[in-house]
């Protein structure tokens, strides 16, 4: 049987794609186990409903779990604290149900009890959040310790994950109003000046525009008042785009050379007018322009000489 060349090409490409997918799937299969002791807690907190034996009434009861206290065990296992037991941070005394009432008002362990976040704390202190809410404003409001992770590889996922940290409150009236009596901001309306809004939302993080522009990584914690947010398109859409110091900081660190054609044309998965310049494309276009003018100039010179 004779197979036409384009069909062969398609078959080979599909085959390569399949292999690529299988290899990727295998990479992801490495399993991390939930610490044994967490099962006690997740038995109830891992579900929307929980059941217990009520000794007073002598019946098995089934109740609705407060949705804000439900722990998604999959996100937990993907998060940075995946190996930790609940009781590493929460009191061991939670082991009984009903939980002891005093535990609710006892001071909890906080992030800085384990982590050294001095530099970040300095930036957070300048943030509008701190100004508005003072010491109420804690890391975990944005970085849920039950799922927080550093997304690095996939840009789209990185952006989505990061923006959800903000949207968690800014798009949830109930959570938002724990801290303020303001109405929930109408994000789509306040950002309606932004062209191609959906694309911007999917490809850049809120903090690109809403944090102070400096070159320290910690400065992303300095959320500026809305009047100071970046609104000039040119700040990002420019050769010296501020995204170089923000969203693309990691990527650029890994690849400082502007001579890497493959990287800058294919790997970057977004297009930013004015900021996606490629050394080779620039060179080739200048060359073609140059040759065109050179040709015209030479012809003109001959025309002038011959006319005499």
């Amino acid at each position: 049987m004779k197979i036409a060349l384009p069909i062969k090409f398609v078959i080979i490409c599909s085959f390569l794609f399949l292999i690529h997918q299988i290899v990727q799937a295998q990479d992801n299969e490495e399993k991390i186990k939930m610490p044994e002791s967490n099962n006690v807690c997740l038995n109830c907190h891992g579900h929307k409903y929980f059941s217990f034996y009520n000794e007073n009434t002598e019946i098995n009861e089934r109740k609705l779990m407060n949705p804000y206290f439900v722990i998604d065990s999959i996100s937990y296992l993907q998060g940075a604290h995946q190996g930790h037991s609940c009781i590493d941070c929460h009191s061991e005394d939670y082991g009984v149900y009903p939980h002891i009432a005093e535990l609710k008002i006892e001071p909890k362990l906080t992030c800085v009890d384990c982590h050294d976040f001095e530099a970040i704390a300095t930036e957070v202190k300048k943030s509008v959040h701190m100004e508005a809410f003072g010491e109420f404003f804690q890391c975990e409001l944005c970085h849920d310790p039950h799922s927080n992770k550093l997304v690095k590889s996939d840009m789209a996922e990185l952006v989505r994950y990061n923006n959800n940290r903000c949207l968690n409150c800014h798009n949830d009236v109930d959570k938002y109003q724990v801290f303020t009596s303001h109405e929930n901001p109408q994000l789509l309306v306040t950002h309606d000046w932004l062209p191609n809004q959906a694309l911007h939302f999917a490809h850049v993080r809120c903090i690109e525009c809403h944090t102070a522009v400096t070159d320290t990584a910690d400065a992303v914690h300095h959320i500026v008042p809305k009047e100071q947010a970046v609104k000039n398109c040119n700040e990002c859409h420019s050769e010296n785009s501020l995204l170089r110091d923000k969203l693309y900081k990691h990527q650029l660190k890994e690849d400082r050379s502007e001579f890497n054609f493959y990287k800058s044309f294919i790997i970057n998965d977004a297009y930013i007018i004015g900021a996606n310049k490629n050394y080779y494309v620039n060179l080739i276009s200048l060359l073609i322009f140059g040759l065109t003018f050179f040709g015209i100039l030479t012809h003109t010179i001959f025309r002038i000489i011959k006319r005499k």
Binding site: N232, C233, N234, E235, H237, S238, E239, N240, I273, G274, K277
Partner: peptide, 12 residues
């Protein structure tokens, strides 16, 4: 394409 915040040919 060649815009630059300090000296854009035409305002972006």
């Amino acid at each position: 394409q060649y815009t630059n915040i300090e000296s854009p040919l035409i305002n972006f």
